[in-house]
Nucleic acid binder design. Structure first.
Lengths: 329, 329
DNA sequence: TTGTAAGCGTTATCAC
DNA sequence: GTGATAACGCTTACAA
C-alpha cells in the first residue's frame, strides 16, 4: 500500500498524492477530492520511514527521564507528548535509571534513530553524552534543573533555591534542628542540590548544618522509612525534616508516628513534588510543588520553535516552584 | 556521515561496512577491524530510517497506556522498554487518556510510523482501532486484562476475578456492608470489572449489592476523597470499602478519618495496585498487588517471539494478582 | 496545477 | 569474502 497505489487509483502521479497530503492548498479541489477518496478506499497510511529518509526529518523527539517507575516525571512526559503530538511529532522515551552510561547509550541509540530533537533530564551529563551531542546539530532541551550554561536550552527551576526556600520556611516557623533525607550532593544530583540549598539557609540562619540521611537505592518510600527511622534516633531529635520527594515524605510521616512523634508538633515534615497523594495523607503533606507538566509543555514549545521557527527563543526558562502549606509543616 | 564515508575511509564497499555492522561473522577479521576503526574515527551512527526502508522493519514497538499521569502503568512500561531495548528495539509511547478515539488516533499514527508491533492496554477497543489493525499484519499484545478472544496475544490478569477475591476476603473477615469507589462498569473499564467481581461475590455471599461511588474525572485522590466522603454519609455506614486504585484508597483513609471512623475497626479499606506509598500510609494499606513489571516483560517477550522467532507461543498469559494484607483491611 | 527524474542511506541479491 | 546494482517509498527541484 504505497503512494503509487493511491496515485494509480486516483489517476494522478505520486507527486500529486504527496502534495495532496502535505500541501493540499497547492492541489486543485477536484483532484484533492479524488485523491482523498482513493486514500480512504485503500486505507493508505504514509510511510514515515521513507518520508524521514527523503526529508531528513523524522518528526520524532526523544526524551530521557531518570525513571518511569514513579510518577515524578509522568506529568512532564505527558506535557511533552501532548504538545508535540499536536504538532505531528511522536515521542520516543527512555529511562536512564539515574545512570550516566545508560543515558549515553540511550542518546546514541536515539541519535541513530535520527530523532529531530532530544530532551534530557538534569544538566549533568557524561562526557560520552556530550561528545555524541557535540558531533551533530540536534536541538537539546535539558529539564528539571537550571544552569547558566545549558547545552542548548534549559527548562526547569533551581533545585538549590528550592532547598534554600525550604530552610527559610523552617526558620520562619521557629524550627532549629533541621534534617534532610534524599540522595547525596556528591552525585551532583538534583536531590543533592536541594540539600545544598538547605545547608546554605542553615548557615545564613546561624544554625547547625542539617542532619542528613542518604538513600542510595532509589528514592522509594521503602528506602525512606528506614532512613528516617535512623535519623529520628539521633539526639537531639530534629524538629524539621525536608524530604527530597513526597514518596520519601509519606514514609517519613509513618516513621515519625512509629517513633511516637507527632507531626507537625514535634517535627515538621516537608516533601517535594506535590505528588497526587500529598493532599490526602494524614496529616496532609506540606510540600514543594513543581509545575512538572508546564516543564514538559514549555520544553516542547522551545523545541518546536527551534525545529519549525526562527531558532531564537529563551535559552533558559525558569518555571519556578511553590511551597504548598498543608498540615505537616 | 554515511555508510559510504566509512566505506571510503576503510577502502571497502558500502556492503562490506553494512555486513561488518549486521553480520560481522561474514567479514574477514582484518577487514572488520579496518571498518571498526573507520567507524570510530568518524563517529558514524547508522541511519535507522534508511535501514527501516530497506528492510521493512523499523525496530520500534509502540505502546499505548491510559495515562502517564500516575505510576500505575509505569513499571509495565519500564518492563517493556528494558526487555525490548536489550533486543535492539525502541519504545514509542502514547497515552490515550482513557479515551477510545484518542487510542485510535494513536494507533493510526503509530502504524504510519511502521512500528513492528503494538502494545495496547485493555481488551476493549474502538471499531476504528480494530479496523486499522485488521488491515495490516502487526503483532498486537493487549495488557492489564484478560479475554478469551484477544486480537492476537493478551498478557494480564482477570479484573473480575480480582474483585471477586476482594469480596471473598471481606466475607472471610466478617464484613457485610460493602462499598466500592472507582469507575462505572458501563464504561467496560478494567476498574468497572473489579466492581462486577465484587458484586458477584456479594451475591454469592447472600449480601446486599455493594454501595458504589463512581469517579468520572480520573482516579485521582482528589476525586476519591469527595466520593468516599459522600459514601460514608450513607446509613448504615459501610464496613468494607474496595478502592479501584491505591491513590483512591489513600484518599479514602483520610476521608474515613475525617468522618471519625477508625480503619480497619469501623471500616476496612482495601486498595488496588500496591503503589509504592501503600506500605507507608497509616494505617498501612492492604491492597491487591498486580505484577505490573512482569506484565511488561512478558508482553515484550511475547512480541519478540512473534517478531524474531517462530510465531507460536501462548495467546493468553495470566500473570495473576495477590491480596497484600497490611493494616487497613 | 501537475508530472518527471533523481536521490535520501541502507540492504538483498547475485555475481565474482 | 567482497562488490555492483537495484530496490525500499517518499520528496525536492525542475519542467511542462
Amino acid at each position: 500500500m504505497r503512494l503509487l497505489d493511491v496515485a494509480r487509483l486516483a489517476r494522478v502521479s505520486t507527486m500529486t498524492v504527496s502534495r495532496a497530503l502535505r500541501h493540499p492548498e497547492q492541489v486543485a479541489v477536484s483532484t484533492l477530492r479524488a485523491v482523498q477518496v482513493a486514500i480512504a478506499q485503500l486505507g493508505y497510511l504514509p510511510d514515515s520511514a521513507a518520508s524521514a529518509l527523503a526529508t531528513g526529518r523524522s518528526r520524532i523527539v526523544a526524551a530521557i527521564v531518570p525513571t518511569l517507575m514513579n510518577s515524578v516525571y509522568a506529568s512532564t512526559v505527558h506535557g511533552l507528548a501532548s504538545v508535540l503530538r499536536r504538532a505531528g511529532y511522536e515521542l520516543m522515551l527512555g529511562d536512564s535509571g539515574y545512570h550516566a552510561p545508560t543515558e549515553a547509550a540511550l542518546v546514541r541509540s536515539f541519535l541513530g534513530r535520527r530523532v529531530d530533537a532530544l530532551v534530557l533530564t538534569g544538566v549533568e551529563h557524561d562526557n560520552a553524552t556530550r561528545e555524541l551531542l557535540a558531533r551533530r546539530e540536534v536541538p537539546v532541551v535539558e529539564i528539571w534543573d537550571l544552569t547558566t550554561k545549558p547545552i542548548d536550552t534549559v527548562v526547569g527551576f533551581s533545585n538549590v533555591a528550592a532547598g534554600r526556600e525550604v530552610g527559610r520556611y523552617f526558620q520562619a516557623h521557629g524550627r532549629s534542628r533541621w534534617a534532610f533525607v534524599g540522595t547525596s550532593p556528591e552525585r551532583e544530583s538534583r536531590s543533592g542540590k536541594r540539600l545544598l540549598g538547605l545547608r546554605e539557609a542553615a548557615r545564613q540562619a546561624g544554625l547547625d548544618a542539617p542532619l542528613t540521611a542518604f538513600v542510595t537505592d532509589g528514592m522509594s518510600p521503602a528506602a525512606g522509612h528506614a532512613a528516617v527511622l535512623d535519623l529520628l534516633r539521633l539526639q537531639p531529635v530534629p524538629d524539621a525534616l525536608f524530604c527530597a520527594n513526597d514518596a520519601l515524605a509519606t514514609a517519613a510521616l509513618r516513621a515519625a508516628a512509629d517513633r511516637g512523634l507527632s507531626v507537625p508538633r514535634h517535627i515538621a515534615v516537608l516533601g517535594f513534588g506535590d505528588f497526587d497523594v500529598a493532599a490526602h495523607t494524614s496529616p496532609a503533606l506540606s510540600t514543594v510543588r513543581i509545575p512538572g507538566r508546564v516543564i514538559g509543555e514549555r520544553a516542547a514549545k522551545a523545541l518546536l520553535a527551534r525545529l519549525e521557527g526562527s531558532g531564537a527563543g529563551d535559552r533558559r526558562i525558569d518555571v519556578g516552584f511553590e511551597i504548598v502549606v498543608r498540615e505537616s509543616a
